[in-house]
Design a protein around this nucleic acid. Structure first.
Length: 114
DNA sequence: GACTTGACTAGAC
DNA sequence: AGTCTAGCCAAGT
């Protein structure tokens, strides 16, 4: 399997998250095959270069329950604003993941044999 | 190969 | 609902 590092895999998956929809770190990790790699996913996004951030909708990735992780910068603020711009409903400080969560839309359309 | 760090998660207070 | 602790995973040093 391509060991391009977890980054490429995370980016590729996050990139195909439909607009107006959000996924959790754990969800992304699970789809990548790393059941408890939620933290690893966060690591990948933390290392997300600006040039990649331009094409990767990192703002569509939130924590469990739709909560936005406090990375200690203007990040959360921008993320929330961007999600809102996509029509995502917010329940206070958390995203209404029950309504915008991935219902299986990100289905990997790659070969059935990965 | 061991230690440290971090955009995580679930459970307890 | 907010805060703390313990457990997990991958990458960096």
């Amino acid at each position: 399997m391509r060991d391009d590092g977890l980054f490429a895999r995370v980016y590729a998956l996050v990139r195909r998250i439909p607009r107006g929809r959000v996924a959790t770190y754990g969800q992304v990790a699970a789809m990548l095959g790393v059941a408890r790699g939620a933290r690893a996913v966060g690591w990948a996004l933390r290392a997300l270069p600006e040039d990649e951030a331009a094409r990767v909708p990192w703002h569509r990735v939130v924590g469990t329950g739709g909560r936005i992780s406090p990375r200690g910068g203007p990040g959360p603020e921008i993320q929330r604003r961007r999600l809102r711009a996509e029509g995502v409903s917010f329940r206070g400080t958390h995203v209404d993941i029950g309504r915008h969560g991935l219902h299986g839309s990100v289905t990997r359309s790659r070969g059935a044999s990965d």
